[in-house]
Nucleic acid binder design. Structure first.
Lengths: 135, 135
DNA sequence: CCCATATTTGCAACATTGTTGCATTTGGAA
DNA sequence: TTCCAAATGCAACAATGTTGCAAATATGGG
């Protein structure tokens, strides 16, 4: 689906930073960090706008954020269609060698057997190792 | 066990920053962020020393680091005794209300059924929600 | 098409977490 | 006590993210 259509579907204004972010992720085909997206967006790049756009796009269910390590965060487009919980409720794999991140859409972790009185609202799983190309 | 003994057991020099860090975590009884530890350590506090000490203590298996969210990292003492993989290979629970982190030592996630060719070296699971005191 | 306005952008400044280089200090052993 | 490798402490820097505010813009109504 075109970036324009995605924004339209979610009733968001079709501004150029938002379009550029979505297109950068689409053209890459894999989750990217801010630095990687900024390179694809070229010179008219503002970090504040980027972070505010990401908040808007995440709240709309267009993409999700993956915290890989202390100072390493990547952003991934969600599959098209109506927002379903399982779209973001999946595990992620990070390759320690090629530094690429993969959404493991078919792995839905949990439920976990928590001690009495604990209530889960969300969970994040990140698996690290070597991907199929690097092993 | 005393902080001094812990360092001795791992053949580490018994320097005052290391002792202060371990004692801060012991007196708290729960995982703490850098800012929380620095308050407990008082005025003679240096951030570089803190990070280098944490690296040393983590490599020695005395404590482990938990990435809660983009800019929120906590550190937890490991149980005493010889280093066992299961000590750090457990899930963590973060309470969205009281902001406290709990090591769920009895929850050992995985193994995960990864696509062909993927090799796991480690994994991290963080469960968020409401703890037993806040629910 | 143009105008009004609420939203969004872009800039400056700042906050937090973490790292690197280097001179000084110190723990621990001879 | 003396010596030296290891560790500390300081300055500077890097990366990620946030806040306040003025200027620009998307979009709906006339």
């Amino acid at each position: 689906m075109q970036a324009l259509e995605i924004l339209q579907q979610h009733n968001l204004k079709k501004t150029s930073p938002r379009l550029a972010i979505i297109e950068a992720l689409q053209s890459s085909g894999e989750p990217l960090a801010e630095a990687e997206i900024s390179i694809k967006m070229g010179s008219h790049y503002d970090r504040t706008t980027f972070y505010r756009s990401m908040l808007t796009l995440e709240e709309a269910g267009i993409l999700h954020r993956i915290i890989v390590d202390k100072l390493l965060v990547k952003y991934a487009l969600n599959p098209a269609g109506p927002t379903v919980k399982s779209q973001t409720d999946h595990a992620h794999f990070y390759c320690n060698q090629c530094k690429k991140l993969v959404c493991l859409e078919e792995i839905h972790p949990g439920p976990y057997r928590l001690p009495a009185g604990f209530q889960t609202s969300e969970s994040e799983v990140i698996i690290k190792g070597l991907c199929n190309k690097c092993s």
